[in-house]
Structure formats: C-alpha cells, structure tokens
C-alpha cells in the first residue's frame, strides 16, 4: 500500500490538537530551507540561528495562542516571519559580521560541507565563502528574491506576495540577480 506524506497544513492541525511531534516534523522538514535563507542574508551563523529560533518561537506562540489563520503554505508564512526578523536585525544597524580564521576564511563555512577529504573541504569552503561574498554584492532587492526562491523554495508568485510586488517584478529581479551573479562569478573565476 502506498504511503502518503502528511501535508504541512495537516501537521499544523495535528499540532493544534496537542501533538508536539507534529512540530518536530515541521521543523525537520523546513529548517534547512529557512536557515539557509536567513544565513545567506545575515552572513553570520550565530545570528542566523538566533533569528531562526525567534521565528519558531513566534510560530509556536501564534499557533498555540489560537491566532493562526493562514490559508497559504506553512513555509511561506514561516519565511515571512523570518524575513521580518531579518529586517528588524538590519534596522538595528547591524551589518554583515563575519568571524574569520587566520587565513581570512569565514569559520562558519566549515560546517555542513559534504566533501569527504580535507583538501576538498578547504576548496569548497573557499568557493562557498567567495560565493557568499558575491551574493552580498547584489542589490538588496535582487539578493532577497534569489534567496527566497533558491533557499526558502518560495515560488515567484509567493515571493511577489511576500515582497508586495508583481510577479513580473519578482521574476525581473531574479533575472537581474542571476545575470549579475553570473558576471561576478566569471570575474572571480569560480567554475560553474
């Protein structure tokens, strides 16, 4: 017999009946997308983890407080909460902090790299660190749509709704983001 995966909405409903395990499944399902999106935007692992945790606290408070009336996708709602927290973070005057090692590499890029040996890992770390710096050079609106589409896995329609622009504007920003990123990648000799 085929098994059907429970949808996010079904998990939310289950959680609202008191099943805490449903929240664990929702977290496991979306935490990498949310965290990667936040991390690319704030470029600091500790800050990204704080923001992700605060986002989940707000999600729990809203759900358990009986204030959840979202009709859209859970991930879209969660990303909207996370995005507002990222905006708050930068409104407080925070820039793009990084912690570097003696070689000048971002130490947080050493984590979660799948390559097997140390040499591969170092090459991947250097490439990823450069790539993060290039993404940072994109105009904010382009960087945001790139992150929301690629990491948070929101559709262009969902991004348009979230950022209150038309779908054509969201698509156009993505096009500029990719084209600008491609030029930067070529300029810095990163292999595609």
């Amino acid at each position: 017999m085929g098994q059907r995966t429970m949808s996010d909405q079904e998990l939310v409903q289950l959680y609202l009946t008191g099943q805490e395990k449903a929240l664990a499944v929702l977290i496991a399902r979306h935490q990498d997308k949310l965290f990667s999106a936040i991390y690319v935007l704030v470029r600091n692992r500790a800050v990204a983890e704080d923001i992700l945790q605060d986002a989940y606290f707000k999600i729990v408070s809203t759900l358990k407080g009986g204030r959840y009336n979202e009709e859209g996708k859970f991930i879209q709602w969660a990303m909207r909460i996370a995005r507002n927290l990222v905006i708050d973070h930068f409104r407080r005057g925070n820039k793009f902090p990084t912690v570097t090692d003696s070689e000048g590499n971002d130490i947080f890029t050493y984590i979660n790299i799948p390559e097997e040996n140390q040499e591969d890992r170092l090459v991947a770390n250097e490439r990823d660190s450069k790539l993060r710096q290039l993404i940072e050079q994109l105009p904010a609106e382009q960087r945001e749509v790139l992150v929301l589409r690629h990491y948070a896995d929101l559709s262009f329609k969902e991004i348009a709704d979230l950022t209150q622009v038309s779908i054509n504007t969201a698509l156009g920003r993505m096009r500029y983001a990719l084209n600008n990123l491609r030029k930067l990648i070529e300029k810095h000799n990163i292999a595609l």
Binding site: E20, L23, A24, I27, A28, Q31, D32, F35, S36, Y39, V40, R45, A48, E49, L52, Q53, Y56, F57, V60, S61, K64, G65, I111, N112, A124, R127, D128, L131, R132, L146, H150, Y151, L178, L181, R182, I185, I190, L192
Partner: peptide, 30 residues
C-alpha cells in the same frame, strides 16, 4: 550551473535550535 553552485550553500542549524523550540513549545503557556 549557478543553481548548482548556490545549492552548495545549503546549511543546517545546530540541533540545539530544534531542541530549544520543542522545549519552548512543550512548556508554552499563553
């Protein structure tokens, strides 16, 4: 190709975040 490169930047938060959220939820009172 850019999509593949960007995919290499996917990262996971520490397990402590999940544990903190689940503990927060288990003890949540309005």
């Amino acid at each position: 190709g850019i999509g593949t490169l960007l995919g290499s930047l996917m990262v996971s938060p520490s397990k402590a975040i999940r544990d903190n959220v689940l503990a927060f939820s288990a003890h949540f009172t309005e």
